[in-house]
Amino acid sequence: MTQSPDASGLKAVFVNATLKKSPEPSHTDGLVDKSAEILTAHGVEVTRLRAIDHDIATGVYPDMTEHGWETDAWPGILEQIMAADILVLAGPIWLGDNSSVMKQVIERLYSASGILNGAGQYAFYGKVAGCLITGNEDGVKHCAMNVLYSLQHVGFTIPPQADAGWIGEAGPGPSYLDEGSGGPENDFTNRNTTFMTYNLLHLAGMFRAAGGIPAFGNQRTVWDSGVHEFHHNPEYR
């Protein structure tokens, strides 16, 4: 049997993009519970939040109060994500797609695309991410593709099989936590959620041990300084 991972010192943030404000029950929270419990059992410090509970402004800058908005809760949320090793975006399916809140969260993550880490790389380098999707209509894979593409585009690393989800009978059918839905007992969902969580955990631990992603050939600061390795202009031009 392989050795249980040492996750002491790792931090994870789950952002639930449900349309329901607390304390209204969220089916997505039910699936987040399963992943968060695994991480917590291995010593990971877990933070959970519902984006809709916070006054997040719309826009693509790190702090929208600098662009005409009176308030913006995103800078505080971004600070928690920056301090974490693992990010999991979770949300429901609406009209076969991610929720409007999920899209807003992804837009605001994109707002940090100009921030660099201490090695001159994009800020999310060395952090891992995955996603959880719930719904009572088709669309789990479509939603996961959109979320995971967006996360890797802004710099997160996506481990193998980094998504999991549950959908009920083609709608309007039962939702994940509804009595008799079979959601919490579904072996396929539980297996995928478990594998996703451990893959996130393993890769985050590897990055911690290695000090992140090697800073060679991917440093924005070096590129901006004019050093373009393997992209020299040919002399005959």
Rank of each mutant, 00 (worst) to 15 (best):
M1S: 11
M1W: 04
Q3D: 09
S4H: 04
S4T: 10
S8N: 11
G9L: 02
G9T: 10
K11W: 00
A12G: 02
A12P: 02
V13T: 05
F14V: 01
E24W: 01
T28E: 08
K34Q: 15
A36N: 03
I38Q: 04
T40W: 04
H42V: 00
V44T: 08
V44L: 06
V44A: 06
R48A: 00
H54V: 05
I56R: 10
T58N: 12
Y61F: 13
M64A: 10
H67M: 06
D72R: 06
W74Y: 14
P75D: 08
G76A: 14
Q80A: 10
I81R: 05
A83C: 02
A83Y: 04
A84M: 04
A84F: 04
A84E: 07
A90E: 01
A90T: 02
W94F: 15
G96K: 05
D97C: 11
V101C: 09
E107L: 05
S113T: 07
S113N: 11
G114H: 09
L116E: 03
N117V: 05
A119C: 04
G120T: 08
Q121W: 01
Y122R: 14
F124L: 12
G126K: 06
G126M: 06
V128H: 03
A129L: 01
T134Y: 03
D138H: 13
G139V: 13
V140H: 11
C143H: 01
A144P: 10
M145N: 15
M145C: 12
N146P: 00
V147A: 13
V147I: 15
Y149I: 09
S150L: 05
H153T: 11
G155D: 07
G168E: 09
L177Q: 12
P184T: 09
P184G: 06
E185G: 02
N186R: 13
N186P: 12
D187M: 08
F188T: 12
F188A: 14
R191L: 13
T193R: 14
N199M: 10
L200C: 02
L201P: 06
A204S: 05
A204D: 01
G205C: 01
M206E: 15
M206R: 13
M206L: 15
F207G: 05
A210G: 11
G212L: 01
I213Q: 09
I213T: 15
P214N: 00
F216V: 13
N218V: 08
R220D: 08
T221G: 00
T221M: 08
D224M: 15
V227P: 02
V227A: 14
H228G: 02
P234W: 08
P234R: 08
